[in-house]
Design a protein around this nucleic acid. Sequence first.
DNA 1: CTTGCCCACTCGTCTATACGAGTATGCATG
DNA 2: CATGCATACTCGTATAGACGAGTGGGCAAG
Lengths: 261, 261
Amino acid sequence: MTSLPSILGGLDPTSDRAVFRQIADQLREAIDRGRFKEGEKLPSEAELVEHYGVSRMTVRNSFSILQGEGLVHAEHGRGVFVRPRPPVRRLASDRFARRHREQGKSAFIVEADAVGSHPTVDSLEVKEEKASQDISTRLGSVRRVLARRRRYLLDGRPVEFATSYLPLDIARGTQIAEPNPGPGGIYARLEELGHQLDHFEEEIRARMPSPSEVKTLQLASGVPVIHLIRTAFDTAGRAVEVCDTVMAADAYVLSYQLPAT
Amino acid sequence: MTSLPSILGGLDPTSDRAVFRQIADQLREAIDRGRFKEGEKLPSEAELVEHYGVSRMTVRNSFSILQGEGLVHAEHGRGVFVRPRPPVRRLASDRFARRHREQGKSAFIVEADAVGSHPTVDSLEVKEEKASQDISTRLGSVRRVLARRRRYLLDGRPVEFATSYLPLDIARGTQIAEPNPGPGGIYARLEELGHQLDHFEEEIRARMPSPSEVKTLQLASGVPVIHLIRTAFDTAGRAVEVCDTVMAADAYVLSYQLPAT
DNA sequence: CTTGCCCACTCGTCTATACGAGTATGCATG
DNA sequence: CATGCATACTCGTATAGACGAGTGGGCAAG
């Protein structure tokens, strides 16, 4: 085992940089340089207290900085560990192409299988409800909507929580209102119902999660979410679905292809 | 002025939820309900110590949670304030359409003017350098590249930091290697040089900023960044430019349009 | 050998105190 | 009236100590 002083330097008492920041800097640098590897345990609070000759709260303060940056995570009773970068799911911009839809399987399942992950869907909920102001606007002033909520997991880890909203006059009484929408998902059903899809619009934001999002996505601290709102338009120019998706940002890379013309 | 007890409740000593979390919960809820409005000052640490009958560190702990969530920010000597949501810039997916390019003005300037903001560009740097592994791969195994770095500001606030990388055999000695690339930007120059643009690929990630990004973007704590990597392809299928962009997530909404076919 | 308990070590929460430094306000001085 | 300083209030940093609770290893009892 390598001794602490060989990895972490000393403090600069002349510096005006706060001690706990100096410690955080040294730990961050050590992690970046690979002196501490992914999943590896950092020195315990007590060891750092010893090494730097500071109080425990100061060390904890340093850790809390690194936690906020998403670099490390603490486990009660075990230690503080370098946060491993989880496998990332790439979302290609053609993921809703009709040819995929015609294959029958849902987009999520297909992709997950492709990378060898075990996909799951839970927290299914399908119900009619009052449309929020925003959803109503996007769907063209509808009052009530059919909401389809579900959570996606990859190898048991929740990565995405999505809600689809559809106007009642389209969805009510159809298979879209059933828990299982059938092969190809609701987009396939929409087209069968005569709503030939023309294009999608996606809006992307990134922000820190709310406490409830932390819970449903089991997010580590320092992990933002990607908030994606997709609106599907049929060839008549009508918005036929709005899908509101919140994704664990450390589990996704979104990919888009744009024409240059 | 409304008294504290009418806005914030008391603690539940029977709850197993940590005191500092309970306080954070109450403050968060008060903010969500609009009891504290944007930009408004929250009760001072001393007042909350008084109100809840806890020690100051406990109150500070609560604040640090809310800071991590990006809900509030502290100003030394003044107080803790509800973080105002800054105006947001929308990036449409057609922002690189040729018709815009032919107008002459850079995309950033045009858009900013449209929303009445005052746009600025600084930290201009243009130089040749060794390509990183990632950039080299994306550009098709080039060794050295021309790098164009710049920072964009809106009404004086830095919102985006971007670096364009171009293969030397394309860019060297052209106006692309000049600080000012001329009307329509480097994409217009590329097309003049015979590299007719075909399409772009954009990769999007969200994560917490590094310390250096916090500095150059002057990010408040609890604000993630959107990391966008765009590759431009010409009609010959060659990658002619890679643009690496880091954006303050609270200043942007990205918008894409996807065909359904 | 297995079971179960103890103990050492870990992080989590909270208190109490001290001093430093930035901000704003009002009052005294010129 | 204007300037400048004193002062009170704000958050920032750091110390020292206490107890709680989760984890894991070792040891003793069965």
